[in-house]
Each structure stands twice: as C-alpha cells, then as structure tokens.
C-alpha cells in the first residue's frame, strides 16, 4: 500500500509540475510602464509585422487590407486554423485590449483569458519584439475600422484542441534570444530585428519538424510549401545570390533582378515591405547577406 501511495503522490506531483510548466506566461505590467505610443511607429510596425496578410479578409486588396475581419484559413497537419478578427471592435475584435493584453499575445502567445494561442499566430517570432513597438502597434490598430462579426472558430480536432498542451509545445519551441549572433553592424542588427522578430520570415522560410517547431539548425534554408505545391526558397547567401540592392528592390517593388515578379504568398509580403522605409529594407537585405547564415551555421 505504501508504494502505491508513494506512486500516487509522485504522479500528482509530476502532473502538478507539468501543470505549472504549461501555464501561460504573461508580461509584468512594469515592463510597459511609461511608454508613450507613437502612431507613425505603430503603422510601420503594422507593416513590418505583416498583420494584414493573415487578418484581412481573404482576397482583400488596397484599403480593404486595413479591415482586419479575419477569416483567412490555414490548413495544416494539425487541423485548419482560421485567422481571428483583430479589428478595433470591442467584442468581435481586439478594440478592448490593453497594451498588456497585446504584449501577452505577441510576446508569450497568451490570450487575455490566460489561454495559449496556437502557433499559427507567429508569436515565437514576435517574442523578439520591443515592447515600445507593441504599445505603438496597439494604438495604431485602434485607429482601423471595427468589424462586428467574429471570425469562425478553428477547425482543430483531438488531441490538438487541448490548448493546455500548447504549453509543452512552447517549452520545446519558444525561442529566447536571436538565432544569428556575433558582431553585427547597427544596420545588420536592425535587419535581424525585422527578420527574426516582426517580419517573421523564418516561419515560412525555415523548415519545421514533425511537431511543427522550426528547425533552427536550418534557419532560412527554405522548405516544402505547406500548400503541397512547389517549395519555399532559401534566403541564405549561399543559395540566394542577389546583391543587397537586389533584395531591397525586391522588397520594394516585387521585381527580381531578372524583372520577373513575386508570386504566391510573397505578393502579400511585398505589399507590406513596400510600405517600410528604404533604410529598413536595406537593413533586411544586409542581414540576409550575413555570411553566418550560409550553410545553416546560424545557430551555434
């Protein structure tokens, strides 16, 4: 009997530790104290983060991309994720969110109710962002139109519908710190921030493992297209031989050095990067030319 009691105690203790380890993380309110939002900055963060690519209604063009009604669906091996309404509506959208709510969502993947978000929302990248950028983004989002209709729910079956288990996923795959380290110029550092943080380039351009985590040892080396057709190209300097100027131009106008144009999902990305400053596009390009990116040397 004694051993059974001991075993039960151990099991409960184990479950308790598991419960603790998988509990959603939050920012501490003093991290956000004293930050004044800047709408111009918020707008730049909005485009650097590519919010509209997922949260605008499917097929939206031009100014309709500022209507963040959600509804875009993302099929995956775990189920179909539907982008939520993040418009300024207080009920259907996120108009009622405090800066802390948005920071918890973007830095920790935690909802205001304390639930884990699915990593289809690229918070593993957004986690690298500055809180100043997030506070300004929240202010900018509140200036965009309100949509009163909520987006449909995710279509995710058992066991992936147990959100608590995402705490374990986060333990395995949450990134802390930069993928690319070493001595960088201020321009390369700015590029690293944009690429590894808000730009979340790695979410598509880095291959994933069986659990859907990024294989950081193959950072930006491309991979199969989740649509099943074609592949997503590598961005590492040993594979992408464009000059820094060529990359910056592509991010501005969508033209390749051969004057072919971007296609597929990249067209939406360029709609965003075309709104960044020339300096930011040059910074992204400077980062992508870093020699440590070649041959998957980026991490370790």
């Amino acid at each position: 009997m004694k051993w059974l009691t001991a075993l039960l105690i151990l099991l409960f203790a184990g479950a308790g530790v598991g419960w603790l380890l998988t509990s959603p993380e939050r920012v501490s309110p003093d991290q956000l104290a004293g930050i004044t939002p800047d709408l111009k900055l918020g707008e730049q963060v909005f485009y650097a983060g590519g919010c509209a690519s997922c949260h605008a209604a499917p097929g939206a063009e031009g100014d309709d991309k500022l209507i963040l009604a959600g509804g875009h669906s993302f099929p995956s091996q775990f189920g179909t994720f539907i982008a939520p309404n993040i418009s300024s509506d207080k009920n259907a959208g996120i108009g009622g969110w405090s800066d802390e709510d948005l920071a918890n969502a973007m830095l920790h993947g935690t909802s205001p109710e304390g639930q884990h978000y699915y990593p289809a929302f690229p918070y593993t990248s957004y986690a690298q962002m500055n809180v100043e950028d997030i506070v300004s983004l929240n202010a900018f989002l509140k200036t965009l139109p309100a949509v009163a209709t909520p987006a449909p729910a995710h279509e995710v079956g058992f066991p992936f519908n147990i959100r608590r288990a995402l705490g374990g996923w986060k333990l395995l795959f949450a990134r802390s710190g930069w993928v690319v380290t070493g001595d960088l110029t201020p321009e390369q550092e700015r590029g690293r921030y944009l690429v590894e943080g808000p730009g979340h380039c790695g979410e598509c351009h880095t291959p994933r493992n069986g659990l859907g985590g990024l294989d950081l040892g193959k950072w930006l080396t491309g991979g199969p297209n989740p649509s099943g057709k074609g592949k997503i190209p590598a961005l590492t300097p040993d594979q992408l031989d464009w000059s820094q100027g060529d990359i910056a131009e592509y991010l501005k106008s969508g033209f390749t050095p051969e004057y072919d144009s971007a296609g597929g999902e990249m067209v939406d990305v360029i709609a965003n990067t075309s709104k960044l400053s020339d300096a930011d596009r040059a910074a992204i390009a400077a980062y992508l030319k870093l020699p440590q990116l070649a041959a998957g040397d980026a991490s370790d």
Binding site: K231, G263, V267, I270
Partner: peptide, 21 residues
C-alpha cells in the same frame, strides 16, 4: 511609377501562377 507596375505583375502572379518547383 515602378511600384504600381510591380504590384500589377504581382497581382496576377499571386492568383494565377504556380510556385516554382
């Protein structure tokens, strides 16, 4: 005038061109 041209090329390539294999 370059940006709108790139946008017009991309609009069709986004919707109607297969990714490179």
């Amino acid at each position: 005038a370059m940006g709108p041209l790139g946008g017009a090329c991309g609009a069709c390539h986004k919707a109607y061109r297969e990714p490179e294999s």
